[in-house]
């Protein structure tokens, strides 16, 4: 079977991999690569990063999720699996949109779509002090960042960066609309220079917040315009670039 044969990892980049597939990492990538990179000085030996959907095993890398294998050259290289998933698992450093479910003493409890509710201290807002508490109600939306997120602990969010600035985080306005898309689509939207976002921004002005947990908040000038964006983004899930351009052309014509 192809799976156990242990295919070299480079060969699979951009292809679909399934759990159980074993990918072989060349023992000394620099030595092998020397022949190809004629003249160029061999890159210093750096660590290879094994991203989501991959685990180390005896023979190399074991695939644990299905999806497309991706590779990034920078800093020793990184491999990961790009998979379509709906359920979010909090990861440290991720920005996410949470819904306030309870105010418990010094902390707010946020539903982020993960297995456990995240906690958010009322002091973790820009300019918040013991006296000056942020005005947060149950049911409000909060855009924040995970500072604690691992499998064994309750996830914890903050709405300030390391220098105490909000840098865009905090309570999201009362208007606008919240909806959910797959995690794969969110990553596509958050990619630098995402085509979808660029195409959307040419339609009309609107505000948007994208959470890594698949939640999107949108606010345009009118209800109608907001609804159009919601519907476009929901439809983007299974559209090729081609189909999407046609859909946009149709909309901008109207």
């Amino acid at each position: 079977m192809a799976a156990r044969g242990g295919v070299a990892v480079e060969e699979r980049v951009g292809q679909v991999v399934l759990p159980g597939d074993v990918l072989v990492v060349p023992a000394h990538p620099d030595e092998d690569g020397e022949r190809l990179r004629l003249g160029a000085p061999p890159a210093p030996h750096t660590r290879l990063l094994c991203g989501p959907g991959l685990r180390r095993c005896d023979a190399g890398l074991l695939v644990t999720k299905c999806g497309l294998l991706r590779h990034r050259q920078a800093a020793g290289g990184a491999y990961w699996v790009d998979s379509q998933q709906k359920r979010y698992v909090p990861i440290k450093g991720d920005h996410a949109i949470g819904i306030v479910t309870a105010k418990a003493g010094d902390v707010f409890k946020l539903d982020v779509g993960g297995s456990e509710q995240a906690s958010l201290s009322y002091l973790a807002f820009e300019g918040a002090t013991k006296r000056n508490r942020p005005n947060v109600q149950v049911g409000d939306l909060i855009y924040g960042q995970f500072v604690v997120a691992n499998k064994d602990m309750e996830p914890e969010m903050v709405c300030v960066d390391s220098s105490g600035r909000s840098s865009g985080m905090g309570i999201i306005g009362q208007d606008g609309f919240l909806f959910k898309v797959s995690l794969g689509l969110i990553r596509k939207l958050l990619a630098p220079k995402s085509e979808i976002i660029q195409e959307l921004s040419q339609l009309y002005p609107f505000e948007m917040v994208l959470g890594m947990n698949g939640r999107i908040w949108v606010k345009a000038r009118t209800v109608q315009q907001t609804l159009i964006i919601v519907n476009i983004l929901e439809a983007c899930e299974y559209m090729t670039a081609e189909q999407r351009k046609q859909a946009f052309a149709k909309l901008s014509g109207n």
């Binding site: 759990p19 159980g20 644990t64 999720k65 999806g67 998979s83 709906k86």
Partner: peptide, 11 residues
């Protein structure tokens, strides 16, 4: 299990 994207050791 595949569609949900749960981590699997094999199929």
């Amino acid at each position: 299990l595949l569609d949900a994207g749960l981590p699997l050791a094999s199929l």
